[in-house]
Amino acid sequence: MNLRSSMNPPEEISVRIAATQQDVSNPEAPAADRRRFDAENLTTLLYPIVFGVLILILWQTQVLHRILGADTFTLPLPGRILTIIADNAPEILMNARATAIVALTGLLFGSMLGYLLGVIAAVFPKWGIGGLTVVSAFNAIPIIAVAPILNNLTKDFSRDADTRSMLAKILVVTLMTMVVMSINAYRGLTELKPYSEDLMKSYAARRTDVFFKLRVPNSVPFLFTALRVSVPGSVICALVSEYFAEYIVGVGRQIRENIVLAQYATAWAYILTACLMGILLYAILLAAEGSLLKGRR
């Protein structure tokens, strides 16, 4: 619930990128061996599911409770949680929608702003890097401090509490996602393949050509690296920013209300909703990344 990604100064990202690419390209399994690859994929999906089902069974039969020393009150049974979700589906959906709007709008604005910052930093490296350093410092401030500040600052934006709360929440998410994206975008725009720029120069390519034909394409995998961090991050940020918002709506607010009122089963229904939202968005991202970057590896 804090800025999970935290500072990723340029150096870090490259390592992460290298790692993910190593991960995906899997040099030891040439594409020729399709069948083996499929089997790999199957187990990648199957193992976690089997494990999950096992945990669920242990949870429902309360073996998990005995291991943890918790009771069915603090860790309610899955059956009860699902009943609550079924009983309150419209309300949960309404809250989930409010949270999704905040998370996605913030993610969109933050990522666009971040990319823009990255571009500026790449075009004017002398000033840009300093700017990025300053921006990354924002990540060291806990959200629980940022959210109330922004909530107070947006008070005059609208007389409608819902509108101004929404703005405050979106700003929190924007700020967080912007930082991650700007650093990665800068990295992607400047970390070129050795000699590729020299090659472009030898073709007498113009600066704009180098930018659009070399730098921008180069930044796409980095863009996805940033999104891998900021997509789950945006959901978590949205949840926390809701704690402090004036207008009472959203999954995060419901979690807090119910935990404070000791309604753990209901709180868990919302926690489950939050997790599902995060997983769904992450799955969409992975699918998009997989299909878009396929030909590039």
Partner: peptide, 20 residues
């Protein structure tokens, strides 16, 4: 990083799709 130089069009499509 292995990438092709014809990546531009793919990327624009990629960005557009994500935004859309």
């Amino acid at each position: 990083m292995k990438k092709t130089s014809k990546g531009k069009s793919i990327n624009l499509v990629a960005l557009a799709t994500v935004c859309a």
